[in-house]
Structures are given as C-alpha cells and as structure tokens.
C-alpha cells in the first residue's frame, strides 16, 4: 500500500527506451568516456595503450565475474583477496619448491579454491551466517594458512613459458583479452540460456518464491560461491603469471576494486539484478579511468579519491544499482 509512495520503487514498472537507457547506463557512460579520451589524448589513442588497458582489465574482470554470481544471489564474498593470495603462493610453491608440472599444480589450486568456495557456501547457505561475516572469517583463516605455508615471503622462479597466460599474444591480440571474452561469452550463455543459470537471478530476486517453485536454492547458493572461487583462482593465476612469482599479498588491494566493478556493472547488492557484460564493461571502465590518470601523471592517492567519487557518481546516475 505505502510502497507506491516511494519513487524508487515505481521506477521498476517503466519500460521502453527509458528502461533501455537505465539498464545500459554504464555502457553509455563508458562510450562517452572513451570517446572523450580518444578525442583529447593522443597517448590514449595509441593501439598499444588500448590493448594494454584491456590486458590489465581482463584478469580483474574474470575475478569480478565470479564475485558477480555471489552478489547476484544476494550474498557477498569478502574472501577473494585471500583466495588470490592462496592460489598464487600455493601454485608457486607446488611448481618451484615441489617441482610438480604446471598443469597438475593448476589442477590442485583450482581444487583448493573449490573447497574454499564450498566452505563459504555451506557457512552462508546452510549455516545461515551473514555472508559478510562468514567470508570474512574464511578470509582471515586462509590468510593464516598462506602465511604459515610461505612464512610471508614470495616464491619466485616460475617457468618462463607460464608468462604466456598473462603477457602472451595470439597474433596481435593479447591472450588475456581472448580468455576474458571466452569466459564472458560462456557465462553470458550460461546465465541467459540455461535454467540453472537463470535460477541465480531467481534465488537473488526472491528466495522464498524460488524455493517454492522447486529450485534447489541451497545448491544454487553454494554453486555461486564455488564459481566465484574458481574464477578468482583463474584470475589469480593470470596475475601471478605476470610477475612469475607467488605472493600472498597479491590480492590485498583488489577486493574493493572488484566490488566497485561489480557495482559499476549495474549489479544490485540486494541480488537478483545484473549482467555479465555489465561487469566486463565495469572492469574496462575502471581500467580506463586508472589508465587516463596514469597518463595524466596523477599520483596514486588521488586515484583512490577519484575512484571513490566515480563509484558514487555512477551509482547515483544508474538507477539499477540505486534501487536497493
């Protein structure tokens, strides 16, 4: 009865061009931003720079796509920063210290991240803990393990060939970019064309209704955390391959970047609303901003200030994210 009084709730019922604009506001802002930069900055136009932006954005984008699934179901995964550290340090440890082949080490770290994802999911979905707290706890515990395993020191000396994952080219196209688009397309098809994929939206949109209509809500909720952990570990392997060294602090600064990207991409923090390509554009958006600030030689601290202001501005403009 009172609900109609609130303007933010009535917006949901509008349609047509207005709805298209509000759904893809981030894309419009992104195109505007890139056009302005293209026209005004000659260094930005350089194809090398453009590829560089996509290359740097791609692994963060892959991690953000993982976080997207968790947020889509109405939860939040704070543990990604320490999952990144875990994958990085254990992968380097397995390859360099124990001499395992790369493929086996990749398999083992992905398995480890699946276990972490299941723990996150079980604590949140079956244990009914708030996801913020559950994953915070898991984050602290994994960080402890990472430290015990490595003593806090980085492990360097990964084989040169592994560098291809993060810095390789197929023809002129950077490999990370191809990887990002392949994953994005697979996930796009998954979330829009399969019933399991669509059930993530259902669970996030209305948990009770999804349960009553026969969706295995617990399975979907846990699967979201597992997908998040697996994509995070793929991203972490990419980030590790750039420096060829395992480092437990690799993901420490990334959690809030990832959150920002998911929100910029138009995902609602209450769950049930968002798009995979929104996340990809969010990642490119943030990277373009960082790149422009580096080209204009703005100091790193100012970049944080600007990122914070941009986050608020985009959320204010984009009614999708504001509807929470």
């Amino acid at each position: 009865m009172f609900e109609l009084d609130y303007k933010e709730k009535t917006k949901r019922y509008s349609g047509g061009i207005k709805s298209f604009l509000s759904d893809w506001m981030i894309l419009i802002l992104f195109i505007a931003l890139v056009t302005i930069c293209m026209l005004t900055m000659s260094k930005f136009r350089d194809p090398k720079n453009l590829f560089n932006i996509i290359r740097q954005a791609s692994f963060i984008a892959i991690i953000s796509m993982g976080e997207f699934f968790v947020i889509l179901t109405g939860n939040m995964d704070m543990s990604i920063s320490s999952i990144i550290g875990m994958v990085s340090i254990f992968f380097a440890g397995l390859v360099v210290t124990m001499g395992l082949p790369v493929w086996l080490a990749v398999l083992i770290v992905i398995l480890m991240s699946i276990i972490v994802g299941i723990i996150n999911g079980v604590l949140t979905v079956i244990g009914k803990m708030p996801s913020f707290i559950a994953t915070l706890v898991v984050m602290n515990i994994i960080r402890g393990f990472n430290f015990i395993y490595s003593g806090g020191l980085p492990i360097s000396g990964l084989p040169e060939g592994f560098n291809f994952l993060g810095a390789g080219y197929v023809g002129v196209v950077p490999f990370p970019m191809i990887l990002m688009f392949i994953i994005a397309i697979i996930l796009y098809v998954f979330t829009t064309q399969t019933s399991l994929g669509r059930s993530f939206y259902a669970v996030g949109g209305n948990y009770e209704a999804s349960k009553l209509s026969g969706i295995n809500v617990q399975f979907v909720g846990i699967l979201a955390f597992v997908i998040c952990a697996v994509l995070t570990s793929i991203g972490a392997l990419g980030l590790t391959s750039k420096t060829l060294a395992g480092n437990i602090a690799l993901g420490d600064e990334l959690l809030f970047d990832v959150m920002t990207i998911v929100v910029l991409g138009g995902t609602s923090l209450m769950g049930g609303r968002g798009r995979i390509f929104g996340v990809v554009i969010g990642a490119l958006f943030l990277q373009v901003i960082s790149n422009v600030m580096v080209l204009m030689s703005i100091a790193t601290p100012w970049q944080w200030v600007v990122k914070g202001i941009i986050l608020v501005t985009v959320v204010l403009i984009d009614s999708n994210t504001k509807r929470d």
Binding site: E8, M76, F256, M259, T260, V263, L269, M270, W304, V305, K307, G308, I309, L311, V312, V315, L316, T321, K322, D324
Partner: peptide, 15 residues
Amino acid sequence: MYLPPFIATMAMQMI
C-alpha cells in the same frame, strides 16, 4: 541519495 550503506561507505573509504 538512497545509496546502499556498503557502497556509500566503501566510496568514503577510498576517498
């Protein structure tokens, strides 16, 4: 401005 508290304070954290 109807920002979700997590986002508003996350932006403040960065700023």
